[in-house]
């Protein structure tokens, strides 16, 4: 169980003004909202990358902000984080990047061949050819490939919690579908608890168990995808209709 308890955060201006949200074990929660509403800030508070001004986040009952450094590091190793801009270590190869995703205490006891195998498996899961990318530096990859390497780094440590910040933004439709399927499979088959921040509402409604809408620093709506589709909240409707519009635009372009 993952709980946000009345989280406040301001940078010059208020960004989060009392966010409370509960994510049940094994469920996939999609978080949507306009850009700049604080979705990334909220996701970062989850594992303490940003400290809120007020409020708390608890993971399986353990507070992220009232624990010592060792507890925090232990909680973080249970979680994988996919950054909006991949955030790959740019002085390291793809192999080194992904292998840092394996917790240090495991790395110490693994042989090189086993590390290589796990890294290659993770890369295959995100539809990258290990032989082609393993020895490349991040600067030699396209934006979409970097994003997927970032995803591989987050899942290679077999986390119990996965936090995705716009995992499909910038991906082509084929790879976006692959990533969506992966998120769904990790949830369904391995019981991973996932939070997916996304702009892709159609995708979000397909893969999530619950959708939360962040607006003006608070959770404006939480419900199942079906509840979301029939909600009469004006902002939810605006989101759905704007999405319908962009879809029809795309159809028009194709025609």
């Amino acid at each position: 169980m993952l709980e946000y308890l009345n989280v406040y955060k301001s940078f010059d201006v208020p960004v989060l003004s009392g966010v409370s949200l509960t994510v049940a074990p094994g469920e996939t929660m999609a978080i949507i909202g306009h850009s700049g509403t604080g979705k990334s800030v909220l996701l970062k508070t989850t594992i303490g990358l940003i400290t809120p001004d007020y409020g708390d986040v608890r993971i399986e009952g353990e507070s992220i902000f009232h624990s010592n450094q060792n507890t925090i590091e232990r909680i973080r190793r249970k979680a994988g984080y996919v950054f909006q801009n991949a955030a790959l270590f740019d002085s390291m190869t793809v192999f080194e990047n992904v292998s840092t995703g394996i917790p240090e205490e495991q790395l110490g006891s693994l042989r090189f061949r086993e590390v290589l195998k796990r890294v290659a498996e993770a890369l295959e899961l995100v539809n990258l050819d290990p032989r082609a990318v393993l020895s490349k530096l991040p600067a030699e990859l396209s934006g979409g490939m970097r994003k997927r390497v970032g995803l591989a780094r987050a899942i290679v440590g077999r986390p119990e919690i996965l936090l995705y910040d716009e995992p499909v933004t910038g991906l082509d439709p084929v790879n976006a579908a692959i990533v969506h399927q992966l998120i769904e499979r990790l949830g369904r088959e391995l019981g991973v608890t996932s939070i997916v921040v996304t702009h892709d509402i159609e995708g979000a409604l397909l893969i999530s168990d619950h959708v939360a809408m962040l607006d003006a620093g608070r959770i404006r709506f939480v419900g199942t995808p079906d509840e979301f589709r029939v909600s009469d909240d004006v902002l939810v409707r605006a989101f759905l209709e704007r999405d319908a519009m962009t879809i029809s635009d795309r159809v028009l372009e194709v025609v």
Binding site: K44, I47, G48, L49, Q69, E73, R74, R76, R77, A79, G80, Y81, F83, Q84, N85, A87, L88, F89, D90, T100, G101, P103, E104, G150, R153, G157
Partner: peptide, 17 residues
């Protein structure tokens, strides 16, 4: 550079101080 490109955040997210 690592800080502003979120590489420090990434390191922390992997449980490395």
């Amino acid at each position: 550079t690592m800080k502003v490109s979120e590489q420090i955040d990434a390191l922390e997210s992997l449980g490395r101080d």
